[in-house]
């Protein structure tokens, strides 16, 4: 059994595990109570969300999933749109980025309920548009892609940036990309692609 010298540390761990189990049990109980209360309250409270409707890549869609679920999971699991990636799950890497009303957001931080009545565009949608095709060509010409895992997010960041600022300075371009981590490219060839887009193709985003 537990050896004497270490029993204090071990019983700490054991107790921690035990209390986790018991708190789970009590959570279950309080959740039951909460849902009883909620359902009672429900009779007098309207507006609890049962469906979320939004526009996804130009098409109206509806989801009955839990509105607190991450938009990232709705896209990947329910719509098979796996272009948005889970690189970190904490809103740091930008691999999950999508356009929400044409602004870049991290879909791993966006609850489904927040997109009600909004426009969501993923890389799959963006790459079909003229803007997307134009950004794509620039990325190809400037060597902006290596392993590719950050690339959909970078495309989204580029579209979002140029949509709001057609003539960004280099610092503004870097700032626009600051929420998208890349480990392969060192960023410069992505920055140069965007500089080209701003200089030569700016009218697309006006």
């Amino acid at each position: 059994m537990l050896s004497g010298a270490n029993s204090a540390a071990n019983s700490e761990i054991y107790n921690k595990i035990k209390s986790e189990i018991s708190s789970k049990v009590s959570n279950e109980v309080s959740n039951e109570m909460n849902s009883e209360l909620s359902s009672k309250a429900n009779n007098t409270v309207k507006n609890s969300m049962s469906k979320v409707t939004f526009v996804l890549n130009g098409q109206a869609v509806e989801s009955s999933e839990n509105p607190t679920k991450r938009l990232l999971d709705i896209l990947r699991e329910d719509h098979g749109l796996v272009g948005a990636k889970e690189g970190c799950g904490e809103g740091e890497c930008g691999g999950c980025a999508v356009l929400l009303d044409y602004k870049i957001v991290n879909s791993c931080l966006t609850p489904l309920g927040s997109v009600q009545d909004k426009q969501v565009i993923t890389i799959e949608g963006l790459s079909l548009s003229t803007e997307g095709q134009t950004i794509k060509k620039a990325f190809e010409d400037y060597g902006s892609v290596q392993c590719g895992i950050c690339t959909p997010g970078m495309m989204i960041a580029t579209a979002s940036l140029l949509h709001h600022n057609q003539k960004p300075t280099e610092a503004e371009i870097r700032e626009g990309l600051s929420g998208n981590l890349c480990r392969c490219t060192g960023y410069n060839m992505i920055v140069k692609a965007i500089q080209y887009l701003a200089d030569e193709k700016g009218e697309l985003w006006c």
């Binding site: 909460n34 969300m49 679920k69 889970e86 799950g89 904490e90 931080l109 927040s114």
Partner: peptide, 24 residues
């Protein structure tokens, strides 16, 4: 939700662990 969705996160494709109702 940018703080809360990290605080309450669970495994991918599981809803975050809010222990009560939420209001958007």
């Amino acid at each position: 939700g940018t703080d809360l969705m990290v605080k309450k996160r669970s495994w991918s494709n599981l809803a975050p662990t809010f222990d009560g109702d939420v209001m958007f």
